[in-house]
Amino acid sequence: MTEYKLVVVGAGGVGKSALTIQLIQNHFVDEYDPTIEDSYRKQVVIDGETCLLDILDTAGQEEYSAMRDQYMRTGEGFLCVFAINNTKSFEDIHHYREQIKRVKDSEDVPMVLVGNKCDLPSRTVDTKQAQDLARSYGIPFIETSAKTRQGVDDAFYTLVREIRKHKEKMSKDGKKKKKKSKTKCVIM
């Protein structure tokens, strides 16, 4: 069974824990209790493949930012979460993405942009803004509501699919490099 290491990042209060708990335990946590770091595991079937999701729910508070490099190193894919009623959390996505790329030393890291709290009427981040940002990053965008469960499975499952595509691409690139290195030079 394939294991996928997913990391949920975003500013404090955007609903990272609520999304994760909704996926794992099928219930909505409405009281806000700032996370330092929590880890969850769940076995699911995605596109006919049974897999184990190892999900790291991270601290959004700035005082825990020193811990970010460590979990970013171990993560295979990242859910970059903002709240649709919090423009600052949307603007912060850029910083999370840049930090992930720096730590992973790669421009090509599996990510999904997630606009959470889409059940709320007080939207300050337009869907088109988020779609445009995701398009500019070359990553999928999904709106979710941890409260109603809308888009929750889709967000995590899409990230797994992005990781699969990335692994497939990397193995193809690896095979191309191996083929090239088999060419021999004969000096007579």
Score class of each variant (00 low, 15 high):
residue 63 E to F: 02
residue 63 E to N: 05
residue 64 Y to T: 03
residue 65 S to L: 06
residue 65 S to Q: 07
residue 65 S to H: 06
residue 65 S to M: 09
residue 65 S to T: 09
residue 66 A to V: 10
residue 66 A to E: 08
residue 66 A to C: 13
residue 66 A to H: 13
residue 66 A to M: 10
residue 66 A to Q: 07
residue 66 A to W: 11
residue 67 M to K: 06
residue 67 M to D: 06
residue 67 M to A: 05
residue 68 R to N: 05
residue 69 D to W: 02
residue 69 D to N: 12
residue 69 D to M: 02
residue 69 D to C: 02
residue 69 D to Y: 04
residue 69 D to F: 01
residue 70 Q to I: 04
residue 70 Q to L: 04
residue 70 Q to F: 04
residue 70 Q to V: 05
residue 71 Y to K: 12
residue 71 Y to S: 15
residue 71 Y to E: 15
residue 72 M to N: 06
residue 72 M to S: 08
residue 72 M to E: 07
residue 72 M to V: 04
residue 73 R to S: 11
residue 73 R to E: 14
residue 73 R to D: 12
residue 73 R to V: 08
residue 73 R to P: 07
residue 73 R to Q: 12
residue 73 R to A: 12
residue 74 T to I: 09
residue 74 T to S: 12
residue 74 T to E: 14
residue 74 T to W: 14
residue 74 T to R: 08
residue 74 T to N: 14
residue 75 G to W: 06
residue 75 G to I: 05
residue 75 G to N: 08
residue 76 E to L: 11
residue 76 E to R: 04
residue 76 E to W: 14
residue 76 E to P: 01
residue 76 E to K: 04
residue 76 E to M: 13
residue 76 E to A: 12
residue 76 E to H: 13
residue 77 G to T: 02
residue 77 G to A: 14
residue 77 G to H: 01
residue 77 G to D: 00
residue 77 G to P: 00
residue 78 F to E: 01
residue 78 F to D: 00
residue 78 F to M: 03
residue 78 F to Y: 09
residue 78 F to H: 01
residue 79 L to M: 06
residue 79 L to R: 00
residue 79 L to G: 00
residue 79 L to I: 14
residue 79 L to H: 01
residue 79 L to D: 00
residue 80 C to W: 04
residue 80 C to S: 03
residue 80 C to V: 13
residue 80 C to F: 15
residue 81 V to D: 00
residue 81 V to S: 04
residue 81 V to W: 00
residue 81 V to Q: 05
residue 81 V to L: 11
residue 81 V to F: 11
residue 82 F to S: 14
residue 82 F to A: 14
residue 82 F to K: 00
residue 82 F to V: 13
residue 82 F to L: 09
residue 82 F to G: 15
residue 83 A to H: 07
residue 83 A to M: 04
residue 83 A to D: 15
residue 83 A to N: 15
residue 83 A to T: 12
residue 84 I to V: 14
residue 84 I to Y: 15
residue 84 I to H: 15
residue 86 N to V: 02
residue 86 N to I: 02
residue 86 N to A: 04
residue 87 T to R: 10
residue 88 K to R: 08
residue 88 K to G: 10
residue 88 K to A: 13
residue 89 S to V: 03
residue 89 S to L: 02
residue 90 F to V: 13
residue 95 H to A: 14
residue 97 R to W: 15
residue 97 R to C: 15
residue 98 E to K: 04
residue 98 E to F: 01
residue 98 E to L: 02
residue 98 E to Q: 10
residue 98 E to A: 05
residue 99 Q to R: 07
residue 99 Q to H: 09
residue 99 Q to S: 06
residue 101 K to E: 11
residue 101 K to W: 05
residue 101 K to D: 05
residue 102 R to A: 13
residue 102 R to T: 07
residue 102 R to C: 10
residue 102 R to V: 05
residue 102 R to L: 12
residue 103 V to M: 12
residue 104 K to P: 04
residue 104 K to A: 13
residue 104 K to T: 12
residue 104 K to Q: 14
residue 104 K to R: 15
residue 104 K to W: 13
residue 104 K to F: 08
residue 104 K to E: 04
residue 105 D to S: 09
residue 105 D to K: 14
residue 105 D to G: 15
residue 105 D to M: 10
residue 105 D to C: 09
residue 106 S to Y: 10
residue 107 E to N: 06
residue 107 E to H: 08
residue 107 E to L: 09
residue 107 E to S: 08
residue 107 E to M: 12
residue 108 D to C: 07
residue 108 D to R: 07
residue 108 D to I: 05
residue 109 V to A: 04
residue 109 V to W: 05
residue 109 V to N: 02
residue 109 V to R: 03
residue 109 V to D: 01
residue 110 P to W: 01
residue 110 P to K: 02
residue 111 M to E: 00
residue 111 M to I: 11
residue 112 V to S: 01
residue 112 V to K: 00
residue 113 L to Y: 10
residue 113 L to R: 00
residue 113 L to D: 00
residue 113 L to S: 02
residue 113 L to G: 01
residue 113 L to A: 03
residue 113 L to V: 11
residue 113 L to N: 01
residue 113 L to H: 02
residue 114 V to A: 03
residue 114 V to P: 00
residue 114 V to Y: 01
residue 114 V to F: 02
residue 114 V to S: 01
residue 114 V to L: 09
residue 115 G to I: 14
residue 115 G to N: 04
residue 116 N to E: 05
residue 116 N to A: 15
residue 116 N to K: 00
residue 116 N to L: 15
residue 116 N to Q: 14
residue 116 N to I: 06
residue 116 N to V: 15
residue 116 N to M: 15
residue 117 K to M: 15
residue 117 K to S: 13
residue 117 K to I: 15
residue 117 K to G: 13
residue 117 K to H: 15
residue 117 K to D: 10
residue 117 K to A: 15
residue 118 C to I: 12
residue 118 C to R: 06
residue 118 C to M: 11
residue 118 C to N: 09
residue 119 D to I: 01
residue 119 D to V: 02
residue 119 D to G: 08
residue 119 D to P: 03
residue 120 L to G: 12
residue 120 L to R: 09
residue 120 L to M: 11
residue 120 L to V: 15
residue 120 L to Y: 15
residue 121 P to V: 11
residue 121 P to G: 13
residue 121 P to C: 09
residue 121 P to Q: 09
residue 121 P to H: 10
residue 122 S to Q: 13
residue 122 S to F: 08
residue 122 S to T: 13
residue 123 R to K: 12
residue 123 R to C: 13
residue 123 R to A: 14
residue 124 T to Y: 09
residue 124 T to H: 12
residue 124 T to V: 10
residue 124 T to N: 12
residue 125 V to S: 11
residue 125 V to N: 11
residue 125 V to P: 11
residue 125 V to C: 11
residue 125 V to D: 12
residue 125 V to F: 09
residue 126 D to C: 10
